[in-house]
């Protein structure tokens, strides 16, 4: 890809995102009952989505690393996890702010989605803490990969199984369910999916930049 095309694409991405930002604020709020705060839906959900995507990428390379034992694969797993952690923190904060504005509380354990994002935050945090505690690089990669894989089954447990199990004494703030299933008008759907697209591309851009940089470091060290 020539650098002209590359620059054009990057600029195009920025324009797209600028468009998303513009229209996310200028068009009517996506969810009328909640009002202006519902606009966060255009940003919060892509971020939550990306923390899962990042975990998936990290997981794939964790598995790969266990087989190849190449440092670059371990780095790929780590880097994806670091970006994922960032998105996870952002998603948790934005979700919490949304909760405050909509339901008056910053946090509510009975809301399965809050529990899920919190769980992801814990897993990411534990993963990074584990890695920090191991001096030997190869062991670090192996144990990190093992933990990453081991922690993974709990994620679908939470996303799919928990909502059925959660004590129904405290009703899930049903507005959130409505949020995801609400009849998205064409306009809303467009802005949302473009936003999702933009953030996904940004994630992979940052990801590949980091990997390339690391590879260059490795090659430089060898020479």
């Amino acid at each position: 890809m020539t650098s002209m095309v590359r620059k054009a694409l990057q600029f195009g991405l920025f324009l797209l995102l600028a468009g998303v930002i513009w229209f996310s604020f200028s068009t009517p709020a996506p969810q009328q009952q909640i009002g202006q705060a519902s606009r966060i839906f255009y940003y919060h959900i892509p971020m939550a989505w990306l923390t899962v995507v990042a975990y998936a990428v990290s997981l794939i390379f964790s598995i790969k690393f266990l087989r190849t034992k190449r440092e670059l694969d371990d780095y790929r797993a780590l880097w994806a996890a670091e970006i994922g952690t960032m998105f996870c923190v952002l998603a948790t904060i934005s979700g919490s702010l949304f909760a405050k504005v909509t339901w008056g509380v910053y946090w509510n354990w009975s809301e399965p989605r809050m529990l899920s994002i919190f769980l992801l935050l814990l897993i990411y945090g534990a993963y990074l803490a584990l890695r920090a505690a191991i001096p030997n690089p190869e062991r670090r990669g192996i144990l990190g990969a093992v933990y990453s894989i081991f922690a993974f089954p709990t994620v679908p447990f939470f996303i799919f199984v928990m909502p059925r199990i959660m004590p129904s004494l405290h009703p899930t703030n049903s507005v959130v369910n409505q949020n995801l299933k609400f009849t998205m008008g064409l306009e809303v759907r467009l802005i949302f999916f473009v936003s999702l697209f933009c953030f996904t591309v940004i994630f992979f851009w940052i990801y590949f930049l980091g990997v390339k940089l690391h590879r260059l470091k490795l090659e430089h060290a060898e020479s």
Partner: peptide, 18 residues
């Protein structure tokens, strides 16, 4: 690893949540 006790709890908790 190095800092065992606390690390054990930190690693276990998310996995034990379900």
């Amino acid at each position: 690893a190095n800092v065992r006790g606390a690390l054990f709890a930190v690693l276990s908790f998310p996995i034990l949540l379900p």
